[in-house]
Every structure is written in C-alpha cells, then in structure tokens.
Design a protein around this nucleic acid. Sequence first.
DNA 1: TTTTCCATGTAACTCGTTACATGATTTC
DNA 2: GAAATCATGTAACGAGTTACATGGAAAA
Lengths: 183, 183
Amino acid sequence: MERELLLLGLLRQHRMHGYELSGVLGGALASCVDLKKPTAYFLLDKMAANGWARVKETREGNRPPRKTYTITTEGETEFQRLLRANLAEFDAPKAASDVAIAFMDALPPSEVITLLQDRRAILLAHLERAQSAPQHSEGLQLLIDHQTYLLQSELSWLDSVITRLRGTRKATVKSHTKQLKEK
Amino acid sequence: MERELLLLGLLRQHRMHGYELSGVLGGALASCVDLKKPTAYFLLDKMAANGWARVKETREGNRPPRKTYTITTEGETEFQRLLRANLAEFDAPKAASDVAIAFMDALPPSEVITLLQDRRAILLAHLERAQSAPQHSEGLQLLIDHQTYLLQSELSWLDSVITRLRGTRKATVKSHTKQLKEK
DNA sequence: TTTTCCATGTAACTCGTTACATGATTTC
DNA sequence: GAAATCATGTAACGAGTTACATGGAAAA
C-alpha cells in the first residue's frame, strides 16, 4: 500500500520510466524504503491497468525503448486517498534484529561487546549513507531526515547498551565462569 | 531467522507448549515482535524435526493434550549460533508508514495536522501498551524497554513535525488556496 | 445455553524477493 | 573483446498471514 503511494507520489512530481524510478529507489531512498526492481515494474504495470497512470513508449536515440508513466486524474485521486490513509495510520516499527538483545546474557559479556561493535559498524555505515544522500525535493528530504534521526536514536541506544555491558563486564565475568563450570 | 532465535530463547528459559508460547507472544511481547499462532506452531514442528527440541505430549486433567517442547543440546548450539549472528547484524528499521510524510505538502496543512493527530493517538496507545506490560525476565524486559525508547523517539519526532506544521499553517494556507484556484 | 477459553493444526492466499532471460550499446 | 549500463520483464520460490476446521471444558 505504501509502495503504491510512493510510486504515485514520485510520478506526481514528474513522469518517469521504470528504470529511472528503480534508480531513484536504489539510490538515496534505499536507506528509507526498499522496493526492488521487479516489484517496481510489476506495480507500474498494475497502476497502468488500474488507470492510475498512462503509459507511453518512447525512444531516445538508439537506446532501448522506455515505458514512460504519467499519473492520471484517477491516479491523483487514489494518491490522495492513500496519502490520507497513510498519514493517519501508524504501524509500530518492529525491530526484528533486537531479539538477540533479549538473550545476550547467554554469552560472555566480552564477546557480546565484540559482536555489538560489528553491529554498530553496520549501523554507522547506514547512517553515513543516509546523511551523504544528495539533496532531494523537500518531502523526500524529510523522509531521509527522519531515517537519519531514527538511526541516530538507535545508535545512542546501542552505545548505552555497550557502555552498560562494559561496566558489568568485570563484575559478571566471574559469575559467568561459574555458570560454565556448573554445567 | 530471528523467529527461531526467539522461540529457542524462550524454550531455553523453560519448556513450553505451543499455546502457552503463543500466549506470551500475543501478550507483552506483542509490541516488539509479531509471530502469529500458526507460524509459531509451524516453527515448533520444524524445530522438533531439526532436532532442536524434544516433544512430549502431556495432559493435565481432562484438558486437551499439550505438546510440550524442550530445547535439546543441538538446539542450544543452534541458539548460540543464531544469537551470535543476530547480535552482529543490523537491519535498518524501514519505517514504511513514513512515505506519507514525504508527500504531506499535497494536502492543506490543517488537514494534515488532523490526520497526524490520529496517527499520534495510535502511537500513544502502542507506547502505553508497551509501558504497562507486566514484568518479565531481564532480557525480555530490555527488549520491551528498547521498544518503548523507540516509540518515544518516534513520538517526539512526530510532535516536532506537527509543531512545525502549526507554525507554517497560517503562512501557507494562502499559497495553498492559490494553488487550488490555479487548478 | 451460548460464549469464551484451551489446544492443535491445515489450506489457500498474498506479497515480495531472487534468480534468470533478453538484447542492444557504451565504456574500458 | 569484455564488462558494465540501459531497459524490460518472467518464473519460481519463500515466508508469513488469514481464514477455516475441530472438539472438549469452563464460565457467563
């Protein structure tokens, strides 16, 4: 549902062909949304079938022909419907990768710290990618900013966990060794 | 992958039958993870088939028979493997519901504010549900705390957006009316 | 006595991804 | 001459959800 909204929103800014679109999605927006090429092509077809977009086959020079999609009036109506629905709803971000955190006491703290630093590096890479994204239209920029904000929150949380672990490391290393021996 | 980790982690704390487990998942953990009943049953079967858990059919009184799952040594090994992998990885939280934010300038700010307040109410409900969750084991509590933290970040971001909109409302209401007339 | 709870599942379906297919063209 | 880019798709697969099926027991 939000994928349709995204595509309609992008087409609303200016007409585009599939490859161009999937370029945009693979570029700066990759940090916020993922919508793979085949999905994009599929959705564009579907949108055209629904009458939300007009298709025109164009050809520049002797490059492969493009299918350029233009949003229609019905498309704009649908866009607004989706937009209203999506603005008013909220689906909680289920942080799937955090299940591990719940069970980290099953490993020695020193190892957990090492592993979490790997995690931290990946998170940092995401952050930098989001921050270094080239300028975009106001709206899309807001999306990227939000993503940046979220990643930063996540980073500071992760750091707090690591710090806490560092603190308890010396204290718990004994009890952990004890646990191992008890087994 | 993190679902298996979650189930193994829970079984590691103490043996459980499917219904009990899906109760836990539907209760306090519902705000963090969603894993529906059929999926849980399916995964438990699979885990038993993989030798990660032992099954024992038990019966208390004249209630329907239960299939109680106990983690095995291989299960524990797998648990640790998954745990290490999951601790070291990070998949960026793609906030799907935020696509709408990127296009909110397509609607009059006053309407956007109304819609975002609906969103805010849902977010608040999630927050309260997460906060009011009954006490859990250390680890699971950490998971819930993280979720709470994330939701709070999200809330304050949303509030900042709404505030900004309130500020620009009077300024942009004219230009928006103008836009409408131009069409 | 009807609804809710306990307890297990199956089957169909949706949605998206991965991997593959095609073919010309420009760059190295 | 090989590799990457442009440009479109198809087909198979996977993972999870929804809806349905079953049946006894307790609570309302």
